[in-house]
Design a protein around this nucleic acid. Structure first.
Length: 358
DNA sequence: ATGTCGATCGTGAAGGTGTC
DNA sequence: GACACCTTCACGATCGACAT
């Protein structure tokens, strides 16, 4: 990493889209590598059959806490890098008050430079939905960025430490905060609920405000959900700047990849519990739509029974699991002359047992 | 039958109000 | 004043009715 370049970025003296690209291509890949080293991961691991809740409601608590811990560790690693490069007068600080953002780069005199909001999503969460609800008026277009960390528990990477599982970062996404907020608001304001009545959907001094049958209320926490911010080809568009286009492209990629990442982890894990062979891809019409081991396959694509049969035949499968975007599964079992549906709309945690019992 | 979208949850800090 | 009980917040998420 180039010292002079890093100093320029941290001082936010480059254009926002250039900062976003640099953070995305140079900086956070290095941070992610360091985070994923055994020396760092071992401090977050689960050892000797330690368990975390499996119940959905309490799982969320663990995810929230992991979010805080990852955020802290990113800053800690960053503060390790600075002196390595001989930068002594700048540091990453934690914003203690519950307000935007999470981390601020500061000079020793307290002057604020780059500011970062960290969001963490677990790959296999059924509906990944951290909220970015900071109002535009609170965002500085020159210094503020949103960093999304995609993580999950992973049993690999332990050489000297004997953890069962430790969190691993799979991908980090960088968004220009102001552009992301513009996309969010352009979408939200132009897509109010159908039952507004005579009211409006908008903002007061502190919050997004929504309206149902002419009764106003503080928005309940759906505004700014990361998975609901923007849609490709939406009819209304904010003013296009390089930063906005960069953020839009990153967002579209993000939306697709985070769903796929969870599917990959779930499919591979369940396949390894069901069969012992090597994992292969399931390819359909030139597209990689899933994974198979021996006679069991997982795909993430809606399909009719005729197509299920075709894919099963091509890949010599007797069991095919088809997952939706929220990893709800339909389990098909091939019979000589027909196809049985072992389960429909099933949660991921039940799938392996259903297959084993059939 | 899948995707969309509003409503709601559990946590650990704490503040606010009511009852004795 | 002591205590019970309800509500607040941000966080990352899940639920479930309804639209497509």
């Amino acid at each position: 990493m180039d010292k002079e370049e890093l100093i320029k970025i941290l001082h936010a003296t480059e254009s926002p889209d250039k900062i976003a690209k640099w953070l995305r291509k140079q900086y956070f890949p290095e941070i992610m590598n360091r985070y994923n080293l055994e020396a760092s991961r071992k401090r977050f691991g689960l050892y000797r059959n330690e368990q975390i809740p499996s119940n959905e409601r309490n799982l969320t608590d663990v995810r929230t806490r992991m979010g805080v811990l990852i955020e802290f560790e990113l800053a800690r690693l960053s503060n390790e890098i600075l002196p390595e490069l001989g930068i002594e007068d700048v540091f990453w600080s934690y914003v203690v008050a519950n307000r935007f953002p999470d981390l601020e780069i500061r000079e020793n005199n307290g002057n604020r430079l780059l500011r970062l909001e960290i969001k963490c999503l677990q790959c296999i969460a059924e509906e990944k939905s951290a909220n970015f609800d900071t109002l535009i008026k609170d965002i500085n277009p020159n210094t503020d960025f949103v960093i999304v960390c995609l993580w999950d528990w992973d049993d690999g990477g332990n050489d000297t430490c004997q953890w069962d599982l430790a969190p691993k970062l799979f991908k980090m996404y960088v968004f220009h905060a102001y552009s992301l907020a513009q996309l969010r608001d352009t979408y939200w304001l132009n897509k109010p609920p159908a039952d507004l009545g005579t009211g409006y959907q908008g903002f007061d001094v502190r919050y997004a405000v929504t309206c149902t049958d002419s009764v106003f209320s503080k928005e309940q926490g759906n505004y700014g959900k990361l998975t609901r911010i923007w849609k490709k080809d939406f009819a209304y568009r904010p003013v296009e700047t390089p930063a906005l286009l960069d953020t839009e492209a990153e967002y579209i990629k993000f939306q697709r990849e985070i769903i796929r990442a969870g599917f990959e982890i779930l499919a591979k894990k369940q396949l390894s519990e069901l069969r012992n062979g090597e994992i292969s891809y399931i390819v359909y019409e030139g597209q990689n739509i899933g994974y198979a081991v021996e006679d069991v396959g997982y795909v993430m694509k809606a399909m009719r029974k005729s197509k299920v049969q075709e894919i099963a035949l091509q890949n010599r499968l007797s069991i095919l699991v088809s997952m939706t975007e929220k990893y709800r599964s339909t389990i098909y079992k091939m019979q000589p002359d027909s196809i049985d549906e072992l389960a429909k709309n099933e949660k991921p945690k039940n799938v392996v047992e259903i297959i084993n019992q059939s």
